[in-house]
Structure formats: C-alpha cells, structure tokens
Write a protein that binds this DNA or RNA. Structure first.
Lengths: 350, 350
DNA sequence: CTGAAAGCGCTTACAG
DNA sequence: CTGAAAGCGCTTACAG
C-alpha cells in the first residue's frame, strides 16, 4: 500500500508549516492569497484529502450524527432513515446508522454504548417507543449530556423537535367513511399497539371519531395485526367473525389494507360497495391497488428536516457551552388522500 | 459537559500504565489475572468506553466498511443495504453509508473522496453499473489500493465476490408462461436498461427463452418503464397498442407488474385468463396482489454475506501485506415462485 | 500573515 | 507480566 499523503507532506512540499496548510484546508481567512494558492495547487496535484479520523480526534468533532432506528423493512422507518440521510448530508453531517434489525434479540444498551464510542456529535433516537428505552437513554445519553433528539419517543427533558400527529388524520379518515354512509366500522391496529404511541394514536383517532358520531366502539370491532399484509388478512377474517355486521375497515397501514383487499377479493366482498376501506402510509403501490386505496401520507421530509436542524443547533450550542432552550415541538399533520376504496359511489372495477 | 473518562483515568485509578489498560480492553493474553480483574472492575464502575476515533487513528483501522449504493426507494438496493448492515455487524464492522439519492445531481467523485477521507477499512460498491463509475473507482480506490469489492458492477481487477444471476430466472419465468400456453409474450423492462447489466440480463433471458421456443422477439414486444407501478401501467398501454395480440407480460419488477394488474382491472382484462403476468422481486406485497403474482426472489442474504466475508478477508490480508488472490465469483440463482397470475387453470377471483 | 509546541486518546514496537 | 516513549494526522491556543 502506497503511503498516504498527509498534511505534513503538503507542508514540506509547499515550504510552509503544518498549520498553514490546515488553515488553507479549513478555509480560514488569515492566509495570504499567494500562500493559499501555492498550497492549494499542491493539494490538488497530489489529490490530498485530509484524514477525517485525525481531524475528528483533534477537533473533538466528528460531523457524525448517530441514528438509532428500527428495521427498515417497514415503510415508516425506511422513509425516515432516507430523509434523515438527505437532511444530515445537507447540513454537513454523515449518518452513523444503528439499525435494530430485531428488537427482541438485540442488546440495545450495548448497541448504544458502542454508538457513543464513535463520538457522534449528536444522536437521533428514531426508535418507536418501548418502556425500557427511556432508562437506556437516560443512562447513556442524557447523563453524559450528549446532544440528543427523539422522533417517536417522548422523554422528559429530551427535545422532540417535531411530531407526526396520528390522531387527526385518523379522525379525518373515519369521518370520511361516516360521510360516505358507513356506520359499523372496524379497525385493524398494528403490532405492540399497546406499547407504542403511534399505534395508540391511530386507534384513539378512530375511537374519537366514532364516539363523536354516536357510533359504538366495542372490543369486537378491534383486531390486532403486525403491520404485514398477511396479518391484515387474518385481522379481516377475525373481524368478520366477531363483528359480522361490519361495513367498513380502517387498516392502520396500507400493507394490512392490502391483506384486507385480498380477503375481500377471495370472498366476493366488493370494496367499496359492500365494504369501505382506508389505510395509512400511502405506499407507492397504494394508488394501484384494486380499488385504489384511501390513505394518509405523512410529511417525512419536514419531520426529518426539523429534527436534523434542531440537533445541528443543539450541537453548535453545546460546543459553545451555552445553555440551550429547546424549541416547542412542531406538530405536523399527515395528508389524507381519498381514493376509490372508500367512496360509495365509485364504480366497480369492471 | 462532564469530562469524559479516558484510558488515562482508568490507568491512574488502577495504578497501572496506560498500555496495561489497553491490553485489558483489547483482551490481550499477556496480563495477570489479578491486574486484569482490578482494571476491569474500574472500567465497569466508571462505565468507561474507549474512544473509537482515537483507537482508529492509532491502530490505523476503523472497523468501518464504506458502502456506496443507490436510493433505497427500490426494493433491491434496500434489501441489499439491510443485509449488508446485518452481515457487517456480524463481522465486527459498522457501515458508513453513502446513499446516492439522485444519481443525476450528485457529484459522485466528490462523494467518494469524502468517503475515503473517513478511512474505511474497505469499500463496498453496490451501485448499479454506469459507464462513468469505472473511471471514478479506478482513480480513487484502485490506485491507492484500498480494499474494494463490487456487487453490481464488473470491473477488471476488482473482486466481485458474488453475482445474482438474472438470466436464468428470467428464462424460467418465460418458459413457465410458455408451458402454460402463452405464446405472444411482451416485456416491460426497467429504467436505463441499456446502461445497466441487470436490466439487460432480464431482457436477455426473455429473448433467449422466446427464441429457444421459436417465438418472435420483435421490438414492438418491448416497452421501457422506470420500475414504478405508474410506468408499468403506461408500459402495458403501450404494449397493447403496438402488440395487440399479446397474451402475457413479463414485467421486470413487481411494482411494474402491479401497474399492469391495475390496467387490466380497469379494462376488464382477466389475469391470468386473458393475460398471463409475471414479475420480479417478490415484494412482501406480491402474494397479496389480485391475483397473487408469480415472481422471482433473489437471495440477498447470501449475496451480501459472501460479499462482506470476502471484503473482510481482503482487509485482513491487506493489513498483513500479503498478496491477495480473489476467489472466483459465486453465482447465486434467484428462486422462481409460481402463483396464480400466470397459471392458466387458476380460478378467477370471484 | 505565519510558525513552534502541545495535545486529542488511543496503540505499537521496544525494553526489561 | 508490565511500563516509558513515540507516534497516528490532524487542530488549537499562543507567540511573534
């Protein structure tokens, strides 16, 4: 392996000191035009690239944001990860991903210690809320006071720059079903809904809308899935068994809605004629379902932009040593997209 | 910010030298049991975590693998990224992702220089082949001889540990359609198929299977999409216009196949009765399409495992300074999954 | 505008 | 089995 060019090499070649080269690299103003040009020419000629590791160590700044996030198999985490990456790059940061492929087998605390060992300038905690996380965060992040923001979890004292409201779009979706004349509306919630804010909120929105309309919200109207299409299919079968008069379903994500559609097709249930259906997520595939799916699209771009910007500010403030007053949480509202699956007058497929 | 605990702190506290602590941390054998226990106890008590940046600088090893990959919006890159992450973690490496969100606007060379600045121990080049990449790789990686493997691109002198064969499953898919009695088979290829190996291979498999069966492969049987469902729908319309006698379609990914299905539903074309359909990818949603979609599933887990293992070996060998003989490329074969969309005898949905 | 010195927090030979 | 010294490749005060 050919010896790599270092700052020292450039300095020698240019006949200047190391920190003059450093100044040129970092675009500091206090270098004469002539010196800057001479040094820059040598840098370009040798294709020199400063060692980011050395720079991080001496500057005590890595320009890395650690991100802890659930498996990217699901649409939500995946979209968030991609947008975080875009936004972080735009802000000059690189992402250090710690993806939790399987929450049940992974040692989150160990995972987290390791992430911290890499000295990220800040950490984005994008994992869906679980009881035990709060303790881990407190122990490993909050106490050593490394800048931290959360995206899905509300922890006292930790900024949560933005939140995706789940209740409002759920109410809108259910109200829309009611306006279309559906009355006996069932719901298929996601996995761990009892333990996560997100699942609860969608259920909560359904409940509020139903009760406001004077409609029942009994336990037999609720089935639990695991976000997969297969579980949507099972949930549909379960609901029809325990709530046979059902005339519409709110599937808490589009994949489960697809399972419901599949069940309906196989059993000769016409959607939306016999059964109204709404989902959540707006998968790229959703407009191409048969019938196209009414659903809600979350503004992940804004969600991530606000989160990254806030963390970047926290990092800056932290370096200066000032006290930081976190901004109020920005509430973002998903957009409801009405498509044929929930519109009573919609013509059948054929 | 409370001063972080360093190795020096541990040494002072334990009354030993710094490198004795270093030995304990790195599990070197040459430490007495008594010393090791005493030091370890202090490490545990203070919750000390060695600074990975300092360690990387002095050891000249970051335990990072850089991965350059296209946008994770698509199923292929996404699956590859997730599996790479799993495999890299299992091998003791972390991933430094450089995601190319938009290939047309990004400065790949600059992107790459920056990745190199972070001193990854090796680089995985998982971008789909484009002409200009080869030059960039040669300039920035091959010359400074940093361990590098490719996944989608074949570059002379650069190991490509495994390859996902696209021709064979395409032949299998088309042969299956032929066996089912379909004869006038159209194909919707993906974006840039002229420029990427992958697109070409699926088209090539279609061509080979058709010609082997003595069936025509005219230009009017081919439409180009962009991998999206919308483009599949457009491709279907285009094919029916220029190839009206068509009785089956090979959509080169499942999303485009979904677009085809959507078109068929809206125009009263029965799949598989009037029109056979096969896709490629086996999206989690594919078994729940109406009808369930015949498609091919690629073994991304093996693909990534072999790639990561090879790179890890190359890194080890490179550190020792030995010459490395890259292994032969392992050819992996996607599995074809037959579902109702291509089975003539399959009963209609209702 | 420029440079000599110290230091970031570790590991790596080299001694003993 | 243990330690003193040097060094990884930069940046940061501090002088001048």
């Amino acid at each position: 392996m050919a010896k790599k060019t270092t700052l020292e090499d450039i300095a020698r070649e240019a006949g200047v000191s190391a920190q003059t080269v450093s100044r040129v690299i970092n675009n500091r103003p206090d270098v004469s035009r002539a010196t800057r040009q001479r040094v820059q020419a040598i840098i370009d000629r040798l294709g020199y690239q400063p060692n980011a590791v050395a720079r991080s160590l001496s500057a005590k700044r890595t320009w890395m944001m650690g991100v802890v996030i659930g498996s990217l198999d699901q649409f939500g985490p995946r979209s968030i990860f991609l947008e975080l990456d875009k936004q972080a790059f735009a802000a000059g940061y690189r992402l250090l991903p710690y993806i939790i492929h399987d929450e049940d087998t992974i040692d989150i605390a160990g995972y987290f210690r390791e992430l911290r060992a890499h000295q990220p300038d800040g950490i984005i905690w994008a994992v869906i809320e679980r009881e035990r996380h709060e303790e881990i965060l407190r122990q490993f992040v909050i106490e050593p006071s490394i800048p931290l923001v959360t995206m899905e979890t509300a922890i006292p004292g930790v900024p949560k720059p933005a939140v995706l409201d789940q209740v409002t779009p759920s109410i809108t979706l259910v109200n829309h079903l009611i306006e279309q004349g559906y009355r006996r509306i069932g719901i298929i919630v996601g996995l761990h809904s009892a333990a996560t804010k997100r699942g609860n909120q969608r259920l909560e929105g359904w409940r509020q809308a139903m009760q406001a309309a004077g409609l029942p919200t009994e336990a037999r109207q609720i089935a639990e899935g695991d976000w997969s299409a297969a579980s949507g299919e099972r949930g549909m079968a379960q609901l029809l068994a325990q709530f046979p008069e059902m005339d519409a379903v709110y599937a808490c994500n589009d994949q489960m809605a697809l399972g419901v559609l599949n069940y309906a097709h196989r059993h000769g249930i016409h959607v939306p004629g016999d059964m109204g259906l709404v989902g959540f997520d707006d998968l790229p595939e959703a407009p191409f379902f048969d019938p196209p799916l009414t659903t809600a699209r979350q503004p992940f771009d804004e969600f991530c932009a606000i989160t990254v910007q806030t963390l970047a500010t926290m990092i800056d403030v932290n370096l200066v040593g000032e006290a930081y007053t976190p901004p109020a949480t920005t509430i973002l509202y998903p957009e409801v997209l009405i498509r044929a699956s929930s519109v009573r007058g919609a013509s059948p497929a054929q």
